[in-house]
Amino acid sequence: MSETVKFTIDGKECIGKKGQYIVDAAAENGVYIPVLCHMKDVIPAGSCRVCTVKANGRNMAACTSPVEEGMSIENNTAELLDIRKAIVEMLFVEGNHFCPACEKSGNCDLQALGYKYQMMVPRFPYVFERRNIDATTPKIFLERNRCIFCKRCVRMIKDAEGRSIFAFKGRGETLEINIDHKLAANMTDEMAQLAMDICPVGAILRKEVGFNEAIGTRKYDKKVIGSDIENNHQ
């Protein structure tokens, strides 16, 4: 049995396993820390920073920092909530996020965080960068306007031989998500669905199934993101 560690989040006493990332340990104790790039049991990327917490007085990404014995973690403070809201706003202005025209609207994690933090307008100016769409593979659209570079698809979507179907190309301003056309040609419907589901925005979309859920019945229409984690432990 693995060693347990005791720590606190906003004063609440929590128990986790040694080496467990803060975000996962928090979830097991009924505390929601927002994530866009993190996925449980996948090697973390720490790229979006929306999970920033203050651990023992220092700002850290909760998805890459393990819990330690006696660690004092701040999560829902005014300062951290504003940092997270600023990150969400930055992601909104950096890409071209036209929610009314997006098939992922209502099921989008980025949008759901905008709702959670009541983002009425981003504090930053819009960039409106031109980005191209790749619609040449049989099962999915790659909508780069919405990509937030979380790398979930790169880390998660692989073929039977373990080869990544998605990859990053370029660096800095020229960075873009790309798809291996040969590997993508053999994607199953299940794989395409998984890729669409793990994408926290609407950058990966399955073809021929868009807008098939009525407004009001989608994931975040009535339910705040993270409420399932918080409610499981009440």
Partner: peptide, 8 residues
Amino acid sequence: PYELVKFD
């Protein structure tokens, strides 16, 4: 209320 602030 949460349901009223939507982007679509």
